[in-house]
């Protein structure tokens, strides 16, 4: 009996690979005025970014309800007795809280563990993929919890932003607040540390940002996998993957668009890179 893995839609794991890895994704919600969309379910990333850039309404986001999680628990309980839920940072969203509350709403007997990955996007996604592979190889729930806790310390996410406008508007700017209000056009590079947004440095151009990202990845001696994500700059993301393939074999580089929920806060023109360090043996 395989442990089932659940994550939320901000993990950015593409729908192409979730079935083969046996991952169930619970979507967050994107709201444009009175229109509500399930993240990557009822709105595609392309549609979303088009509206984000050209639409008049500023989107907001909300976490899944406890019931949404409880329904998934009950569904999966017909196939398994153990479920592991890995969510985005509890400091950035109430998703973790919903997943925990859902345990008491679920009606079918099943052991559910919920872990706050203290990350977002593929910073979360690579941890989930790693856990899903281990689950398929027969790891128990307890083993998976240990593995995920280790993976959290090995997952390093950094992101290049074209603007901080979206992050500030969405109230998730965290420790990068001091970067606001620059009189020069600057491009911040941020990370998510201890569940919160922290500033890393500032550059003045995308190419300088890509140099920084390359050097960041190159600073890890042993890499298990890398993820390259973007909001609206696919060509640059592809270029970056080419460059990074000298540091990490291409089959270990995951590529995906940033989900609408995260895109609401990052805005267009953003790049995110996650390095999952190899386990030290």
């Amino acid at each position: 009996m395989t442990v089932k893995i659940i994550t939320d839609s901000t993990s950015d794991i593409t729908n192409e690979i979730t079935p083969e890895l046996g991952i169930t994704v619970v979507p967050l919600t994107v709201i444009f005025g009175h229109e509500t969309f399930l993240d990557r379910v009822t709105i595609t990333t392309d549609e979303f970014y088009h509206r984000l850039i050209y639409g008049a309404v500023w989107p907001t986001t909300t976490q899944p309800t406890p019931k949404a999680f409880a329904d998934v628990y009950d569904n999966l309980a017909t196939e398994t007795e153990e479920i592991l839920v890995i969510t985005l940072s509890a400091k950035l969203s109430g998703t973790y809280q919903s997943a925990v509350s859902a345990k008491s709403l679920a009606t079918k007997p099943c052991r559910v563990e919920v872990i706050d990955a203290q990350k977002v996007a593929m910073g979360l996604g690579l941890i989930v993929i790693s856990a899903a592979k281990a689950a398929q190889n027969g790891a128990t729930l307890d083993e998976l919890v240990t593995l995920v806790q280790g993976a959290i310390t090995r997952s390093h996410l950094i992101a290049y932003f074209d603007t901080l406008k979206y992050l500030a508007k969405g109230g998730r700017i965290g420790k990068a607040q001091g970067m606001l209000g620059s009189l020069l056009s600057i491009k911040p590079i941020l990370t998510v540390k201890d569940g919160e947004v922290h500033p890393l440095t500032r550059v003045r151009s995308l190419s300088a940002g890509m140099d920084y990202i390359y050097n960041f990845v190159a600073s890890f001696p042993q890499i298990e996998s890398v993820a390259v994500e973007h909001t609206t700059i696919g060509d640059e993301a592809n270029k970056l993957v080419e460059c990074l393939s000298s540091l990490c074999p291409k089959e270990n580089i995951y590529q995906s668009p940033v989900s609408p929920v995260i895109g609401t806060h990052s805005g267009p023109g953003a790049l995110a890179i996650t390095v999952l360090e190899a386990e030290k043996t």
Partner: peptide, 17 residues
């Protein structure tokens, strides 16, 4: 009902300190 699970947004200024 919905806002039970949400939090008010803290406004930040776009002025530098």
């Amino acid at each position: 009902e919905q806002i039970q699970f949400r939090k008010p947004q803290m406004i930040t200024s776009n002025l530098p300190q």
